[in-house]
Design a protein around this nucleic acid. Structure first.
Lengths: 343, 343
DNA sequence: AATTTGGGTTAAATCGATTTAGGTAGTTTA
DNA sequence: TAAACTACCTAAATCGATTTAACCCAAATT
């Protein structure tokens, strides 16, 4: 591997000091009164030897890596993939690079990842956490480590955070289903059930039904472990179907659950929405083209990314996470398609 | 921000040298005859002060960052999202971290990204390149920089690479459509058209049709610019539809093109497959649930990731990209669903 | 003539680790 | 008793940059 040319090489071959070269590179030459002629000589030599500053060494010295971390449960989930893409764009436009980690909802893994990223000296972190309380992040805040929580939130949280109106979205779904005249409902959720988005969506849905004096019996409150969504849902739906106990409508709490639900109902030859109506939280493009097309609560992924990155950058540039951290809650909307229209 | 404890702090508070502490940390103490007792003292102190080695500083010193880059055209594309996820897992299991970049098929951006990542001293790179020749990568090979090209390939390529049998996959699609009895065909491709996957898929398709004495007229060879797939395809399909010139079957060259095609045909009330049949390269879960379900050529994303990471790790561990680089071509399969079944 | 001024430049410390060629002191060997 | 050996440990260089306090010299001022 050909040896890279370093700042010393430039300095030596020119008979000047490394300091001088560094000053020129960093546009501090004028401020230090380096003569125009010398500056030109340096710049020419840099071009001649094709010198590229070692960003790693620079980062080491100045204590800033221009790298941020993004931790989510699964980067191949469309929701997070979109957010990742947007954040990557914002990062790139601001001279940052993104390291992405998937936790599989595994808290230990998540903590290890945060630790590793911090040991690697990332400048900040954007995370959709799987943890069940804010302790860890409050410590991060106290340590002044720039970070923004997205998607999921905690009570007593000091950290900056960006989320959507999960409660309101679920209410929209419930109101819509009630208006359509459905009268029995199931919720398909995800465990671990401490996840705020899940909790809020369930609450928004059940509260709204409650106001209409509709309760959801336990057998229709379905919670599936993250790593076996598909298989478990298959079992549960099959068993309900066998017993003729399917509800009139199902509210699925994220795009994976919606897809899986669609798949297994179809497999059971259950007609949607004639036999069972479906509406999901989180809209993705394909729901427009599934059979039937699927109603969903749409989340503004681009706004989430934008706000999160903005908040992170503020913290990084302020040198620390300062006291009052912004908490941003974004609105959602409902997209009504075939799957939830009463026949 | 509380000051981190460094190796010097440990050394000082113990009255020993930094070297000794470092040796203990790196399990080289025994080899250097450091007494068991001293080792224990060091380890105890490390625990007491909660010392965490600065991985960044270590990387700087040893010249290895344990970070790899992954560059693709768009990380939110399902195909790449899956690959990214798998690579991330392999990386994590091997103590590596992944920096992800999306190029939007922009060659200049891609080069800038490679340069940035190299300046940041990543240990290796996995890339699905948008470039139109192998020069840049051959230079990378000569410089001994570990890298693996995935998905797309080049002629005269010295770099390690993992791809799928695009030609064969396209042949499968063509054979299937012919067997179904369709007799006029369109191909929906992506520009820039130098991309190897696109070229090979087109060739595999047209060659196979050619053997059956079927030609594709220019108006049915549709090539769409990456950043305006959806809009352009809408126009093209509308115009063909208006003129009553839609083919009997369409072969779409990636999952985005397939989705977009589905969307716009549906919008035009064109029945699939009665009016126009569709089969796409690259299968994604949703194609099983779209209306109609969509036939596709499935790519083994997990194998791609696995092989790519394996090849990269080999290069990294060998210290250099050695002469003969492995070239892996993986098989694809055809999944036949409703959209390509003749009525 | 002595002092100040300032333009142009550099030496050296620094970031936090790793690595290697020694050093020291005590014990054994010749 | 001197040399050799052993067991333990350390000094200092190093990675490639940035940063700061000083330095030198010539011109201007007093």
């Amino acid at each position: 591997m050909a040896k890279r040319v370093s700042i010393s090489d430039i300095a030596e071959s020119l008979g000047v000091s490394k300091a001088l070269v560094s000053l020129v590179i960093n546009d501090k030459a004028d401020a230090h009164g380096i003569s125009a002629e010398t500056q030109k000589r340096v710049r020419d030599k840099i071009r001649e030897l094709n010198y590229q500053p070692d960003l790693f060494a620079r980062s080491f010295r100045v204590g800033k890596t221009n790298t941020i971390g993004l931790i989510v449960s699964d980067i191949s989930n469309r929701f997070y993939a979109r957010i990742a893409r947007d954040i990557e764009d914002h990062a790139w436009n601001n001279g940052y690079t993104v390291i992405i980690c998937s936790t599989d909802e595994n808290v230990e893994k998540e903590m290890k990842q945060i630790k590793l990223l911090r040991d690697r000296k990332i400048d900040g972190l954007i995370i959709s956490s799987s943890q069940d309380n804010s302790d860890y992040f409050n410590k991060l805040s106290e340590a002044g480590f720039p970070h923004v929580l997205i998607d999921r939130r905690f009570d007593d949280m000091q950290s900056a955070n960006v989320s959507v109106d999960n409660y309101g979205g679920a209410r929209l779904a419930a109101e819509h289903l009630l208006k359509q005249g459905f009268s029995s409902f199931a919720v398909v959720a995800l465990s671990p059930d401490h996840i705020s988005t899940i909790r809020e969506r369930i609450k928004g849905f059940t509260d709204t039904l409650g106001k209409a004096n509709v309760q959801i019996p336990p057998c229709w409150l379905i919670s599936l472990p993250f790593d076996r969504i598909d298989k478990e849902l298959d079992n549960r739906l099959q068993s309900l179907h066998r017993q003729g106990q399917l509800p009139e409508a199902i509210f699925t709490l994220n795009n994976n659950l919606t897809s899986s639900c669609l798949k297994h109902l179809t497999k059971l030859s259950v007609n949607i929405p004639e036999d069972v109506a479906v509406i999901g939280f989180d809209d993705i493009m394909y729901f427009e083209h599934t059979h039937p097309s699927v109603s969903a609560i749409g989340q503004p992924t681009d706004r989430i990314s934008e706000e999160a990155f903005k908040l992170l950058l503020q913290q990084i540039n302020n040198g620390k996470a300062d006291g009052r951290q912004r908490s941003v809650v974004l609105p959602v909307d409902i997209i009504i398609r075939e799957s939830s229209i009463k026949h």
